[in-house]
C-alpha cells in the first residue's frame, strides 16, 4: 500500500513556517550583503536565545493543553530579585566577575520562576482553576511584587559587571550555548522519558489519560514548574543582554512566546509538537524578520504590522491543522 500523497495545501500547512522562513532569508539575503554574514546569523541566534528558553517552558504547558500568561511578569520578577541581590553583593563597589556569581544569579532567577510556576501549577492541577485565569492573576501579582521590591526603579546590572554581551566562546555568545544545551536536554525529556510521553498523552485527552492511570495532577504541576523555572532563567538572561531591569522588562512577552511556540508547531489545543525544531523556528522567524527589516531601513510602522501578520498566520495554521474537538 503506497503512502497517500499530500496536497499542496496540506504540505503548506505542515511545513508552511519553514517555507516562509526560507523565502524570507532569500529575500533579505539578496537585499543586504550583511544579512547572511556569519556575525549576523550568530547575532540572530543570540537575540533569540532567551525567548527560546521561555518557549521551551511554554511547550511543556501547551503540550498539556494549558497556557501560561504570566511568563513575561515571571521573567521580570525573577530578574528583579536577582538584580536586587546583585545590588547587595556589589554595594562595596566590587564587580561581578566570577562564573560562580553568574551561576548563583541565574539559579536565583530560576528558583523564583519555579516558585511562581509551582503556584500556577498547584492552582490549576489541584484546585482545577482555569489556566488562563490563574496565570492572568499571577501576571499581575508577579509584576506588582517586582515593582514593590525594586521601588519601581530601573536597576542597571551591566554597571555591576553582570553582562552577557562580552561572554562568548569561539565567537558564539554564551547565551546561545545555554539555549542549545537546554533545547537538547528538554527535547530528550519530552521525547524519551515516561513523563514526556504521559504529558503528550494527557494533552490529547485528559480523561482517557486518567483512566489509563496517568497521574495527570502531578504531570500538570511539573509542566508549570518547568515553565516557570525556564521563564525565570530567561528573565535574567534578558537583563544581562540589555543591561538593565526596568519595570517594563518582558512586558507582554507571553504574546511573543506563545505565538513562537505555535509557529513551531506546538498546538494551542495540547498533545502536539516537539522541542526540536519547534522551539527554534518560531522565535527565530520573528527575529529574522525584524532584523531584515532594520537592514532594509524599513518604515518604523511596518514592524508592528508584520508581527501581527505572523501571529495571525501562526494561529490560523494551528487551527486549520487541528482535527479534534475544541475544548
Amino acid at each position: 500500500m503506497g503512502k497517500a500523497r499530500r496536497s499542496p495545501l496540506e504540505f503548506a500547512l505542515k511545513y508552511g513556517v519553514y517555507t516562509i522562513f526560507v523565502v524570507i532569508v532569500i529575500i533579505f539575503g539578496l537585499s543586504n550583503k550583511n544579512f547572511l554574514s556569519t556575525s549576523n546569523i550568530l547575532l540572530l541566534l543570540e537575540q533569540s536565545a532567551p525567548i527560546m528558553i521561555g518557549v521551551i517552558g511554554m511547550t511543556f504547558v501547551m503540550m498539556d493543553g494549558g497556557i501560561d500568561i504570566s511568563a513575561g511578569s515571571n521573567m521580570y520578577l525573577s530578574a528583579a530579585v536577582s538584580a536586587l541581590l546583585m545590588t547587595r553583593m556589589t554595594a562595596d563597589g566590587s564587580l561581578i566577575t566570577s562564573a560562580w556569581q553568574y551561576i548563583l544569579f541565574m539559579l536565583v532567577s530560576l528558583c523564583v520562576g519555579a516558585l511562581i510556576g509551582f503556584f500556577n501549577g498547584l492552582m490549576i492541577s489541584r484546585f482545577r482553576i482555569v489556566p488562563f485565569i490563574v496565570t492572568l492573576i499571577t501576571t499581575s501579582i508577579a509584576r506588582g511584587l517586582g515593582m514593590f521590591f525594586t521601588d519601581m526603579k530601573l536597576i542597571i546590572v551591566n554597571n555591576m559587571g553582570f553582562k552577557f554581551n562580552d561572554k562568548s566562546f569561539l565567537g558564539i555568545s554564551l547565551l546561545v550555548y545555554i539555549a542549545v544545551a537546554l533545547l537538547i536536554l528538554f527535547h530528550c525529556v519530552l521525547r524519551y522519558t515516561t513523563y514526556g510521553c504521559q504529558l503528550k498523552a494527557q494533552g490529547n485527552n485528559h480523561e482517557a489519560a486518567q483512566k489509563l492511570g496517568i497521574n495527570i495532577t502531578r504531570n500538570t504541576l511539573i509542566s508549570y514548574v518547568l515553565c516557570g523555572a525556564l521563564c525565570g532563567l530567561a528573565g535574567i538572561m534578558l537583563a544581562g543582554q540589555s543591561g538593565g531591569v526596568p519595570t517594563s522588562l518582558a512586558e507582554g512577552y507571553e504574546f511573543i512566546i506563545i505565538p513562537s511556540a505555535v509557529l513551531g508547531g506546538i498546538s494551542l489545543f495540547g498533545g502536539k509538537g516537539s522541542i526540536l525544531p519547534g522551539c527554534i523556528i518560531g522565535n527565530l522567524l520573528i527575529n529574522t524578520i525584524v532584523n531584515g527589516l532594520t537592514m532594509m531601513s524599513a518604515n518604523p510602522y511596518v514592524y508592528t504590522i508584520v508581527r501581527g501578520v505572523i501571529i495571525f498566520i501562526a494561529v490560523m495554521v494551528d487551527s486549520l491543522n487541528y482535527k479534534g474537538e475544541i475544548r
Binding site: N34, F35, S242, V290, T294, Y301
Partner: peptide, 24 residues
C-alpha cells in the same frame, strides 16, 4: 539617518534594533 529603529519603549526591542543596525 541611515536607519530608523522603533523601540516601543522596550529596552530589549531597542537593543535588538541597534544590534541589527550595527550589523548592516
Amino acid at each position: 539617518v541611515c536607519v530608523e529603529v522603533p523601540t516601543e519603549w522596550d529596552q530589549q526591542v531597542a537593543l535588538a534594533g541597534l544590534q541589527n543596525a550595527l550589523q548592516s
